[in-house]
């Protein structure tokens, strides 16, 4: 049952595919951003899982602690979370502007409006 023991990684794959599927299929721009966030969250869990050492404690310097989890992936993912927040903010502000300009945030509607416009 080794495959089940790696359940975090199965979770990562499930989340990754869910997020990716939403990004690709949803015509709603906000839902696309949500999908993107789920997709990124799966990567956060991937990194956090790989840093975990079975039975290891938090990396604190103390006499009774001898086995640590690897803190580096956790720190890396803090950076990635910040980047993710910035991307989400940028994406949502674009959606606000798009909604103001088109009156819709459904990709199909916007495409129809773009096509009916004569200027390139």
């Amino acid at each position: 049952m080794e495959a089940l023991g790696l359940y975090n990684y199965w979770l990562v794959i499930a989340l990754m595919m869910t997020g990716f599927y939403i990004v690709i299929t949803s015509p709603n721009l906000v839902k696309k951003i949500i999908g993107l966030n789920i997709f990124q969250a799966s990567v956060f869990i991937l990194y956090i899982s790989m840093g975990k050492v079975a039975g290891g404690s938090a990396p604190i310097l103390a006499d009774q602690v001898t086995l640590y989890s690897n803190p580096l992936p956790h720190v890396l993912i803090l950076t990635a979370i910040v980047v993710g927040v910035a991307t989400t903010a940028m994406g949502l502000s674009l959606v606000v502007r798009i909604y103001a300009a088109y009156g819709s945030m459904e990709e199909d509607d916007i495409e129809v409006m773009d096509r009916s416009e004569t200027d390139g």
């Binding site: 991307t87 994406g91 674009l94 773009d114």
Partner: peptide, 19 residues
């Protein structure tokens, strides 16, 4: 306004690429 859509699509593709 088309720049907004172009930018949004780039954001989606770019973020997927970076991830």
């Amino acid at each position: 306004r088309r720049a907004l859509i172009a930018s949004f699509r780039y954001l989606i593709m770019g973020t997927v690429g970076a991830t």
